[in-house]
């Protein structure tokens, strides 16, 4: 009998050698396209804004994606922008580190433990989770607390649908999320940069809001390791650090969880972390941001431009105090 050994790293999750070797060429193409676009005036300095979307040709495509009315029609950041410039301290502190080192993460097989105040706790396989719901494309603005932003075409499903499946009880007031801890897969965890594991949380009404999604893909493909494979949170009206990656545990809680950055520096990062141009980070301004690909800064919008949908969640709250 032939017993097939499960491959623990999908072909699609590895940057193909040929693609890696030719990376300069891709950049050159990106650069020259930008040059063409700018009628010869621009060089690769502008390649960040180029429209070349060099996806990973070996990645597994996610089919039959629904479009969403909640998507923005703003210009997308390129695949390169989204996958080579982000924070994921489990792989190092530099924003290029996740793309460099996330190859050691094994997003399959993967399971998510669901526990706490709910009717159906358990251990759920990622392959099953991805089949529970129709996948949607959600194009969202992403605003980092470091005052830069991108527009990203996520693929995922509403967190609300996910939550309802486990029948949270009336005691469930918050949802707590936890990232994997494994120094072999996440070499950055050998350094005590942050108290591992990374923990994030949402109030129940935030978790149930239609804008909040669990993302399993990007640019119509399975989520690359460096962006939080195989499953991560996306809450577009909050600073990016709320979007916890590579989730292994979801817990329904009675009291407000202590999220990692608040534990780390409570004077700089709070639980809510709603994008708010009126409340500065103690060390830098949040009034404006640099959209990756643009040279000048643009003004930051309250709730990252999603105020119409979410401001009511915080009616009567002092957002200076609950930053």
């Amino acid at each position: 009998m032939l017993i097939k050994k499960p491959v623990d790293v999908r072909e699609s999750e590895v940057t193909p050698q040929s693609w890696y070797v030719r990376r300069r060429e891709f950049l050159q193409v990106a650069g020259s396209t930008a040059v063409a676009v700018a009628a010869g005036a621009a060089g690769p300095l502008f390649s960040g804004t180029s429209t070349v979307l060099a996806q990973n040709p070996a990645a597994q495509k996610l089919e039959n994606l629904r479009k969403s009315a909640l998507s923005t029609d703003e210009k997308l950041n390129s695949y390169r922008d989204v996958t080579t410039y982000n924070n994921f301290y489990e792989f190092g502190l530099d924003k290029g580190d996740p793309a460099r080192y996330a190859g050691s993460l094994k997003p399959r097989p993967w399971s998510v433990v669901v526990e706490g105040q709910c009717g159906k706790p358990g251990n759920y396989n990622i392959e099953d989770i991805m089949k529970w719901f129709p996948l949607e494309e959600r194009i969202y603005r992403m605003r980092c607390v470091e005052a830069w932003s991108m527009v990203i075409p996520w693929v995922g499903f509403p967190l609300a649908d996910f939550v309802k499946r486990f029948e949270p009880t009336s005691k469930a007031k918050f949802v707590k999320f936890t990232t994997l801890v494994d120094t072999k897969q996440m070499p950055g965890q050998t350094e005590p940069a942050l108290p591992w594991p990374y923990v994030e949380g949402l109030r129940m009404d935030e978790a149930m809001h239609p804008l909040t999604i669990m993302a399993v893909g990007l640019y119509g493909e399975v989520l690359p390791n460096q962006n939080g494979a195989p499953i991560r949170l996306v809450v577009p009206w909050k600073y990016g650090f709320k979007g916890i990656k590579s989730i292994v545990r979801v817990s329904f809680e009675e009291s407000q969880p202590m999220n990692t950055w608040q534990r780390m520096r409570a004077d700089e990062y709070g639980f809510y972390a709603n994008v708010n141009p009126a409340v500065d980070h103690p060390r830098w301004s949040q009034a404006s941001e640099r959209r990756i690909g643009e040279f000048f800064k643009r003004r930051t919008l309250p709730f990252n431009g999603y105020a119409d949908q979410v401001a009511s969640l915080y009616a009567g709250m002092d957002l200076r105090r609950y930053y």
Binding site: L45, Y85, R290
Partner: peptide, 14 residues
């Protein structure tokens, strides 16, 4: 050199 013929990364201003 990198601004015109090379690559200053995703966030050149930074």
């Amino acid at each position: 050199y990198n601004a015109f013929w090379g690559d200053l990364g995703v966030n050149p201003v930074e």
